[in-house]
């Protein structure tokens, strides 16, 4: 009898392990879907074709966030941040090709591109942070980082699809830096500094629904048609007119990894500007589905544990004392 019971429990233990494996193999019925954009989400729309590369936003961002200019050359006569870093939240990068004589042209052209946090709708950084130092505001959707909570494990650095979180490797007591959409300014009723100073309206702030509609308007208007462009905010009356640009017919951030709250428009394909083509399913949702499948309600681990306890008790009794 003991034997059959033992076999039964051994089976149970093995079953628990097998269940865990199976969960990882086949996606459980209750797959965690991509998170949805909060209804009152706010964000930024960056239009590369409007950007003149003046970097007013970079300076304004420094001022708004108490960051000194960053130097990468010996002579400190120019802010030479080449990318976002532990000292820099946003940069404007330059794309060039061939003779680089024509703006917003893929061949023989040049174009600018903003780099800063995209405030993903379903952010990997929030999903992976072990100590909840990365959070997404349920109302506005702003993705924030709280240094007081952070342990500096850099899992977010590894997992972010866009390489956004920047860790201060050069400090004994380092922090992590990323754009928080100037939430401290928004709390005072102001808009993000980069949108406020932008002279051409290349960076616009506003509700996501309005930003998306504005992006659609631009990409669906034929190139060359005189079009109004607002500055600072999407509903602003401060507008200027110019011929509509020849846009890539896609707004980056509408589908990528489940959507982002910074939308990008460009005349040059996004892959060339450092924004890779990404699928729609968020990586966070996929990883969480697998973990949930294995650990959901802690059922499989507990079943496994019960089996292990029984077998270990039985078998230590059998030969534990004889040694």
């Amino acid at each position: 009898m003991a034997v059959s019971r033992r076999n039964f429990l051994r089976g149970a233990a093995a079953g628990g392990a097998a269940a865990a494996c199976a969960a990882a193999v086949t996606e459980p019925a209750a797959a965690r879907e991509n998170l949805q954009m909060p209804p009152k989400a706010v964000g930024l729309l960056y239009d590369s074709t409007l950007c003149v590369g003046c970097k007013a936003c970079v300076a304004a961002c420094r001022d708004a966030n108490g960051l000194a200019p960053e130097f990468t050359t010996d002579e400190k006569i120019w802010d030479t941040a080449v990318d976002i870093s532990g000292k820099t939240i946003t940069v404007i990068k330059l794309y060039t090709d061939g003779t680089a004589k024509h703006k917003d042209q893929e061949k023989d052209g040049f174009a600018f591109m903003k780099r800063s946090c995209l405030h993903c709708v379903d952010p990997s950084c929030v999903s992976v942070c072990p100590v909840s130092a990365m959070t997404k505001d349920p109302e506005t959707g702003i993705v924030s980082h709280e240094p007081a909570d952070c342990i500096g494990c850099r899992y977010c650095v590894v997992a972010c699809p866009f390489g956004v979180p920047q860790f201060e490797f050069d400090k004994a007591f380092p922090k992590l830096l990323k754009c928080e959409m100037c939430k401290h300014r928004q709390a005072e009723g102001k808009i993000p500094a980069c949108a406020e100073v932008c002279p051409t309206g290349a960076t616009l702030f506003g509700p996501m629904t309005a930003l998306k509609a504005e992006a659609d308007r631009r990409t669906s208007t034929a190139p060359g048609v005189p079009t109004d462009y607002m500055r600072k905010t999407v509903d602003s009356t401060d507008v200027h007119e110019r011929p509509n640009a020849a846009y890539v017919k896609h707004t980056y951030g509408t589908t990528e990894v489940g959507g982002t709250q910074m939308l990008l428009l460009s005349g040059v394909p996004f892959e060339k500007m450092g924004y890779p083509a990404l699928r729609e399913r968020s990586y966070a949702s996929e990883a969480e589905t697998i973990q949930e499948g294995i650990y959901g309600g802690f059922v499989a681990p507990m079943a496994l544990f019960a089996g292990l306890l029984f077998m270990a008790r039985k078998n230590t009794k059998n030969h534990g004392e004889e040694e």
Binding site: V126, S127, V128, C129, P130, V131, S132, D149, I151, C153, Y155, A284, A287, E288, Q291
Partner: peptide, 15 residues
């Protein structure tokens, strides 16, 4: 922080 529940992020594999 890793070992106290009020910091815990249960979706984190690292946790």
């Amino acid at each position: 922080h890793l070992f106290l529940p009020w910091w815990a992020n249960t979706t984190s594999i690292m946790l």
